[in-house]
Design a binder for these strands. Sequence first.
DNA 1: GCGACAG
DNA 2: ATCTTGTCGC
Length: 232
Amino acid sequence: MEKAPETGIEESSSPNTSQDDHKQWIEAQDDLKRRLVTEDDFSWKLSKENEEEEEALLRYVGGVDISFSKEDTSVACGTLVVLDIQSQDLQVVYHDYYLVTLTVPYVPGFLAFREAPVLLELLERMKKNASPFYPQVLMVDGNGILHPRGFGLACHLGVLADLPTIGIGKNAMRSTKGSLKPIFISVGHRLSLVTAITIVKMTCKYRVPEPTRQADIRSREYLRKHQTGMSE
DNA sequence: GCGACAG
DNA sequence: ATCTTGTCGC
């Protein structure tokens, strides 16, 4: 260990924990990034080219989000929803919740280390139960390659779950120059930007695409109903 | 020194 | 992410 700069505090036995964490996190991101695929890599189609191959159409699009308790900000509710985009009203055919107490803090640029474990658990749980609605592509509330090191939450989750993912950002640096509140779509894993944008457009009834919008709405509703106070 | 900084 | 009411409009 080297000297601790002018922090005004002497630590000899247990050095800069957060600094070291950041270093390990950066290594982990760079490591996972080697497995990142940013071009189309899936078997389904976005539209039927002929009348025969209808089974190959994209049908199940998932969305994930996490909401936090207003009273205890470490208590979070992760939510996974799946919509059937072949139904005429984007029906929600699956949803699941995971209430947890997070210990990892939110650090800009490292959102995945805080949220990915929760979202991965929801995906693994669904796969374990052999649900027929397991998503063919997943929209994530957070950025993909639109990230300081080109590896945001959507990429992180996509690589670990080996699933095509799309990053849906609602805020980005320099949001003062754009016109009307835009959303920021970026490649997560196993698909191209063109494909990502096409899928997002197919699921947009409002500003935010339905998969992540429904996940957001339902996770907040879950926290509201299951009051996360000490009175419950 | 000051401002920025996904959720 | 969350703290926060009403309000104008389709």
